[in-house]
Design a protein around this nucleic acid. Structure first.
Length: 477
RNA sequence: GCCUCUUUAGCUCAGCUGGUUAGAGCGCCGGACUGUUAAUCCGUAGGUCCUAGGUUCAAGUCCUAGAAGGGGCGCCA
């Protein structure tokens, strides 16, 4: 292909009165004269001005919604109000026509549900191209943050032979013929004959392996796909999602919280600093959507305003016990508005978390020191013998985005906790070895990548921040 | 897994207590338009009323079952 200039570059540093060649998809063709061209490099379109007399009528007819074209022409200052510069076309070539009779997308507002069913085209819309530019940028910022802070990117396995990770239902990995599973003498399936010589699953967490890395290299992180076979049908859950799991040696819960807060703010700042065009579009989109809603149902702050507020203020840090006391003194509790009971020892429900984050503090809240019964076996036991050094970071609208803890480094305590949870020592012999040989206090957390992208983009449904969502009964594309 | 709502034109929806040829806006298609910004204006076409049974003289409308999708909750990130 002959050289093209990307539209982001044309707009960022316009070379007025010079000839440029651009290629992109037609977002609109107004008045038989103005083409709004977008090539994905920017949230902003480039306006192409067409003088009909200079072109064949049949050619112009083919320039339709979402057809892809090549335009060569002079870049000049725009006479119109909506843009600074525009291209006056000298040559137009249609690279790919769109048969609008059959094409599902239309130049109008479309629902998220409809676009989800047309996920192979939805990235061509303003909303989704902004969302996926930001998704890319958040992923980049994740790696940049950790690299700058001397964390090593560790690729933990996607296929795991351990079923003691305790984070949920797993997808079985096998190359057995499902019609003819080899059975042992006891009539049970004989996994020893399977590909890996044992039962294997898709990972639900890279944390236990990340601990191996941290206890050798100091600071590591994982960032990869994670799989949960839970039958979860919500706007915050996926069966396949991406998780970021940093793990630090020589660190306690305090260090863990500091890292979680600093990291979260870095990601948000990176988007505020570099993707303002996309944020402005998404912000406006939410405001348009909320126009028809009652005041009390609208967000108290605009998207950009809220992101700035989050990075400019400290996250609130409270213990689980304090949270329970606050909830029991809250208006909705006293008026019986909560569906679920608030009692020390019971896990906080979504409605309780939302009250803490959206009503009480109106900013991210870190809840620490949960009862040991409701948290995982590897979390470090506190001196009170009732709580563990866990922390959940709760964000407005999304709820839990980060879950982490200081890890139990004391061999005897860990062994006794595993016994409580019914986990065989042989199953995790290597995990116990880490405590026997050169162990030390260490901590880490898992951040739901899509949940973070949801928060930054303001998208209401997690299926709309991943290109091809996998959810129960749904794996199209 | 539980609760709840929805399913009518390409899209978003209206269609009352069952009653003749099922409607609107937008989109498509055709036409007009050389400074538009969700362009505008005029015109045409377009329907297995989700599926299968049932009630009835008569079903888009009522009943039963099923399917698909949304929202809420649980599980978690």
């Amino acid at each position: 292909m002959s050289r093209r200039t990307e539209i982001a570059d044309v707009l960022a540093a316009p070379k007025l009165n010079e000839t440029v060649t651009v290629m992109g998809w037609v977002r609109a063709f107004r008045s038989n004269r103005f083409i709004a061209l977008n090539d994905g490099s920017s949230a902003k379109n480039l306006q192409v001005v067409v003088d009909q007399e200079k072109f064949d009528e049949e050619l112009i007819r083919k320039v339709g919604f979402h057809s892809s074209i090549k335009v060569t022409g002079q870049l000049v200052e725009s006479m119109g109000a909506g843009q600074a510069v525009e291209v006056h076309a000298d040559q137009i070539e249609v690279l790919g026509e769109t048969n609008l009779d059959k094409y599902p997308l239309q130049p109008k507002r479309q629902t998220m549900e409809f676009l989800r069913e047309n996920a192979h085209f939805r990235m061509r819309t303003n909303t989704f191209s902004s969302v996926f530019r930001i998704r890319h940028a958040v992923a980049f910022a994740v790696n940049e943050y950790f690299h700058k802070n001397r964390f090593y990117y560790m690729h933990t396995p996607i296929i795991t032979g351990s079923d003691a990770e305790g984070a949920g239902e797993m997808f079985r990995v096998t190359n057995f013929d499902p019609e003819n599973m080899p059975k042992g003498e006891d009539g049970q399936i004989d996994w020893a004959q399977d590909f890996f010589g044992k039962a294997t699953n898709l990972t639900v967490s890279g944390q236990l392996q990340a601990e191996i890395g941290a206890l050798a290299m100091g600071k590591v992180y994982t960032f990869g796909p994670t799989f949960r076979a839970e039958n979860s049908n919500t706007s915050r859950h996926l069966a396949e999602f991406w998780m970021i799991e940093p793990e630090i040696a020589f660190g306690d819960l305090e260090d863990d919280m500091d890292l979680a807060e600093d990291f979260s703010k870095y990601l948000i700042n990176y988007i505020l600093d570099n993707y303002m065009d996309d944020l402005e579009f998404l912000d406006k989109r939410i405001q348009d959507m909320e126009k028809n809603m009652k005041k009390e149902e609208r967000r108290p702050m605009g998207l950009i305003e809220m992101l700035k507020f989050v990075v400019d203020n400290d996250f609130e840090r409270i213990t689980y016990t304090d949270a329970v006391n606050m909830l029991r003194n809250s208006k909705p509790y006293k008026k019986g508005r909560f569906e679920f009971p608030v009692e020390w020892g019971k896990d906080l429900q979504a409605e309780h978390e939302r009250w803490l984050v959206e009503k009480k503090f109106q900013k991210p809240v870190i809840v620490t020191d949960y009862p040991k019964e409701i948290k995982a076996f590897y979390m470090r036991m506190n001196d009170d013998d009732k709580t563990v050094a866990a922390m959940d970071v709760l964000f407005p609208y999304i709820g839990e985005v980060i879950g982490g803890s200081q890890r139990e480094e004391r061999l005897d305590v860990l062994v006794s906790r595993m016994k409580d949870f019914g986990i065989e020592e042989e199953e995790l012999w290597w995990y116990l070895d880490l405590r026997k040989f050169g162990g030390n206090p260490h901590a880490g957390f898992g951040m739901g990548f899509e949940r973070m992208v949801q928060f930054i983009t303001g998208m209401g449904n997690i299926r709309d921040v991943i290109p091809f969502p996998r959810t129960p009964k749904s794996a199209e594309f």
